[in-house]
C-alpha cells in the first residue's frame, strides 16, 4: 500500500477537515447539552437531525425558500418537536434506570426512521441552490462557501448556547438543575421545566444544523444513522456534557476523516477515525478538555 499524497492534497484535507469538524460540532452540541443537563443520551438525536434535514429540504425544494431563511422555521419547529417527544416519552420515565432511557430513545429513533421511510420513501433527496457553486480559493485550496457558513454557524451556536447558560436566568436554572436537581428544587427552580427547556434547546440546535447542511448535504430516512454515530464519538471525545470540548471533538473527528482519507489508501480513512477515537479512550477517556475524574 503506497502512501501517495502531496502537499496540495494535504492542505486541502486540513481545510476540508476544519469545515467538516465545524459541522460535526454543530450536530453534536444538542447531544452534549442534553447529556450535561439530565444525564440522558438521546439515541434518537441522529433521527432528529434527519427530521430537520427533511424539513429544510421541503422548505427549500417545495417552498422555494432560501435555505438560510428556513432557519426561522426549522429552529422553532425542532424546539417544539423536541419538547413534544420529551413530554410524550422521556419525561414519564426520567426517574427510571439509564438503560431504560437509552432503550426508549433507541425505540424512538427506529420509529422516526421507519416513519420517514413510509412517508418519504428511501429516496436520497438533495437540493441545488445558488450557493452550491460559491467557493473561496486560497492558493490551491478551495473552501466551499456553504461549508464555511456552517462552520461559522457552529462557532456562533456554541458561543450562543454557552452565553445563554452563563448569563440568563433560564440558563442558570438549567445549570443548577444539572449540578444538583434536589438542591435546585429546594431553591425554587422548576426542575422538570428546565429539563424540558434544555431538551428543546438541544433539539433546536439541530434545526439550525439542518438548515445549514441542506445546501451541501442530502437527506434520506437513514441519514441519521451515520450522523448519529459521529455525534456519539464527538461527544465522548469532547468529554460528555462539555460544550467547548464538543467543538474540539468535532474538529478532531473532522480532521481525522479528511486527513485520514488523504494519507491512507482505500476507505481505511474511516478506520483511522475510529482508531483516533480508541487511542483517546485509552489515554484520555474523560475527554480532550476535561480533568481526570477518578
Amino acid at each position: 500500500m503506497n502512501l501517495n499524497f502531496s502537499g496540495a492534497v494535504l492542505s486541502q484535507a486540513v481545510a476540508s477537515g476544519i469545515m467538516l469538524g465545524g459541522l460535526f460540532a454543530l450536530m453534536s452540541i444538542g447531544l452534549t447539552l442534553i447529556w450535561g443537563v439530565m444525564k440522558i443520551i438521546n439515541f434518537a438525536q441522529g433521527e432528529f437531525l434527519m427530521v430537520a434535514l427533511y424539513l429544510a429540504y421541503f422548505l427549500v425544494a417545495r417552498g422555494h425558500i432560501d435555505p438560510y431563511i428556513t432557519i426561522i422555521i426549522t429552529v422553532p419547529f425542532m424546539f417544539f418537536f423536541g419538547i413534544g417527544i420529551f413530554r410524550a416519552t422521556i419525561s414519564p420515565i426520567l426517574k427510571d434506570p439509564v438503560m431504560n432511557q437509552i432503550m426508549l430513545t433507541l425505540g424512538v429513533s427506529l420509529i422516526l426512521q421507519n416513519l420517514a421511510l413510509m412517508l418519504f420513501s428511501a429516496n436520497v433527496q438533495s437540493v441545488n441552490t445558488r450557493y452550491s457553486t460559491w467557493n473561496i480559493h486560497l492558493g490551491s485550496v478551495v473552501i466551499s462557501g456553504t461549508q464555511l457558513i456552517a462552520l461559522v454557524g457552529s462557532v456562533l451556536c456554541t458561543l450562543g448556547v454557552w452565553y445563554f447558560l452563563k448569563t440568563t436566568d433560564s440558563g442558570r436554572a438549567i445549570r443548577a438543575s444539572a449540578q444538583n436537581p434536589t438542591a435546585a428544587t429546594l431553591m425554587g427552580i422548576d426542575v422538570p421545566r428546565t429539563y424540558l427547556l434544555a431538551f428543546g434547546l438541544g433539539s433546536a440546535t439541530l434545526g439550525l444544523a439542518g438548515s445549514l447542511m441542506i445546501p451541501f448535504y442530502y437527506t434520506s430516512p437513514t441519514v441519521g444513522v451515520f450522523l448519529g454515530l459521529i455525534m456519539f464519538i464527538v461527544v465522548v471525545l469532547g468529554g460528555m456534557g462539555n460544550l467547548l470540548g464538543c467543538f474540539v471533538g468535532g474538529l478532531v473527528i473532522g480532521l481525522a476523516e479528511t486527513v485520514g482519507a488523504a494519507v491512507f489508501p482505500g476507505s481505511l480513512a474511516r478506520v483511522f477515525t475510529f482508531s483516533i477515537f480508541i487511542i483517546f479512550l485509552l489515554f484520555r477517556p474523560q475527554g480532550v478538555l476535561s480533568k481526570r475524574q477518578t
Partner: peptide
C-alpha cells in the same frame, strides 16, 4: 494512476477528489 476508495456515507469527499486531481 490513483485508486481511491471511500465510505458512501461520507459527509465530504473533497479530500478524495483532490487526491484524484493530484494524480
Amino acid at each position: 494512476v490513483a485508486n481511491v476508495a471511500y465510505a458512501a456515507s461520507s459527509a465530504d469527499l473533497t479530500t478524495q477528489v483532490s487526491k484524484v486531481k493530484a494524480s
